[in-house]
Computed example of a mutant assay.
Amino acid sequence: MATSWTTADIPSQAGRTAVVTGGNSGLGLATARALAAAGARVVLAVRDEARGSAAAAALPGEVEVRRLDLADLSSVRAFAAGWTGDLDVLVANAGIMAVPQARTTDGFELQFGTNHLGHFALTNLLLPHVTDRVVTVSSMLHRSGRIVLDDLNWERRRYSASGAYGQSKLANLLFTLELQRRLTDAGSAVRATAAHPGWAATNLQGRSGSRVTDAAMALGNRLVAVSAEQGALPTLYAAVADVPGGSFAGPGGRLLRGAPTLVDRSAAAFDDGTARRLWTASAELSGVDFPASLPR
């Protein structure tokens, strides 16, 4: 495990292609910048192409922009249908946090639909192209999450913005767990890994709809949070370091700081039975499942 890993430890990515969802700002932009600087061809998969193009113009190397709205499964399908050739690393980074109750285009609770279902569908649709790694960005707030399989979309429960976020981030880890199991069973060399940034100062916070909550998050960003560049290191570590499939990377120091390393997760995130049932539910909701065959 790493003790002082930085972007200087990223091996050459020349000849490799990476897709970073939400790559136009925050952790995604920092991840994309580091991969591009190491020689990768980087595709920013973003909802707003104008903002994506502005971000891409400031990045080194070969960077392109393609539209992807994870809250619209037709957009996810269109992105995947337009992909040709190999994809070495898929970084499922984009997400929303503790937002007011809303629905995706397809009627799913917005945080679950965006953070989990959109990436679930995208990953499985792109998986026949992936040659090396799928990295899913979760959160330490997965520890507060609970998977309620008969109410994943908050139709029976009283809505909790933080509860919905926690559920979606726990779903990210359970997805990684079950994806790795399926990849192993299929004889694939592709690895599924996950990462969390600690508390990084990005535009993810501050969209709760509550002035008090947003002000508290802004204060925390100034006093406690690390930079987006530091927060992206666990994602980069999970994407390029020689770590086992199923690994979870995060900052190794106190107060969710420090160099990236492999970190622990909640007992709920190790629940194989719930991971399999969540996969089945996600496939039914999205209409997308694990590919029938994969390159070995």
Results as ranks from 00 to 15, higher is better:
Ala239Tyr: 00
Val46Leu: 13
Ser75His: 11
Asp272Tyr: 09
Ala8Tyr: 08
Ala102Tyr: 03
Phe112Trp: 11
Ala38Phe: 11
Asp9Gly: 14
Glu62Ile: 13
Pro234Val: 09
Arg276Asp: 02
Gly187Thr: 14
Arg182Trp: 09
Arg41Gly: 13
Leu127Phe: 04
Ala36Pro: 05
Tyr237Cys: 07
Gly253Lys: 01
Arg77Leu: 09
Thr31Asn: 03
Gly95Ala: 12
Val42Phe: 09
Ser282Leu: 06
Trp279Ala: 00
Asn203Cys: 08
Asp132Met: 10
Ala102Lys: 10
Val46Gly: 10
Ala164Gln: 02
Ala269Asn: 11
Gly163Thr: 09
Arg191Glu: 15
Asn93Ser: 09
Arg156Pro: 01
Gly118Val: 03
Thr17Glu: 06
Asp69Leu: 11
Ala2Val: 07
Leu236Ala: 08
Gly231Ile: 04
Asp185Gln: 15
Ala275Thr: 00
Gly113Phe: 01
Thr3Ile: 12
Thr114Met: 02
Leu110Gly: 12
Leu278Glu: 04
Asp242Phe: 12
Ala232Trp: 04
Thr123Ser: 06
Val190Leu: 10
Ala40Met: 10
Ala102Val: 05
Val137Gly: 01
Ser12Arg: 13
Ala92Thr: 09
Thr17Gly: 03
Gly273Leu: 07
Leu90Met: 11
Arg158Ser: 14
Arg265Asp: 09
Asp69Gln: 11
Gly231Gln: 06
Val135Ile: 11
Val226Ser: 14
Gly15Gln: 08
Arg254Val: 14
Ala292Ser: 15
Ala37Tyr: 07
Thr193Ser: 03
Ala50Trp: 13
Ala71Pro: 06
Ala58Ser: 14
Leu70Ala: 15
Val240Leu: 08
Arg257His: 12
Arg254His: 13
Ser247His: 09
Ala195Gln: 04
Ala200Lys: 01
Val288Asn: 08
Leu68Gln: 12
Ala38Ser: 14
Arg47Pro: 11
Pro128Met: 14
Phe290Ile: 10
Leu117Gln: 10
Met1Ala: 15
Ala30Ile: 05
Gly107Lys: 02
Tyr237Thr: 07
Gly166Trp: 03
Leu173Trp: 02
Ala283Val: 02
Leu125Thr: 15
Ala98Val: 13
Arg276Gln: 15
Val137Thr: 12
Leu278Met: 05
Ala94Ser: 10
Arg158Leu: 14
Gly287Asn: 12
Ser266Val: 05
Asp106Gln: 10
Ala14Val: 13
Phe120Ile: 06
Phe270Gly: 06
Ala45Glu: 05
Lys169Thr: 01
Ala259Gln: 06
Leu29Val: 07
Ala239Cys: 11
Thr261Glu: 00
Gly231Glu: 06
Ser168Glu: 02
Ala194Ile: 08
Trp199Thr: 13
Trp83Met: 09
Thr21Glu: 04
Pro128Gln: 14
Pro234His: 01
Arg207Cys: 07
Gly28Met: 03
Trp199Glu: 15
Ala36Asn: 03
Arg16Asn: 08
Gly252Arg: 02
Ala194Tyr: 01
Gly258Phe: 00
Ala228Ser: 14
Arg257Gln: 13
Leu125Val: 12
Leu177Trp: 04
Ala50Thr: 09
Ala55Glu: 07
Asn172Thr: 01
Val65Leu: 06
Ala78Leu: 11
Thr123Ile: 03
Arg156Trp: 01
Arg156His: 15
Ala186Lys: 05
Ile10Cys: 07
Ala161Leu: 10
Leu59Tyr: 07
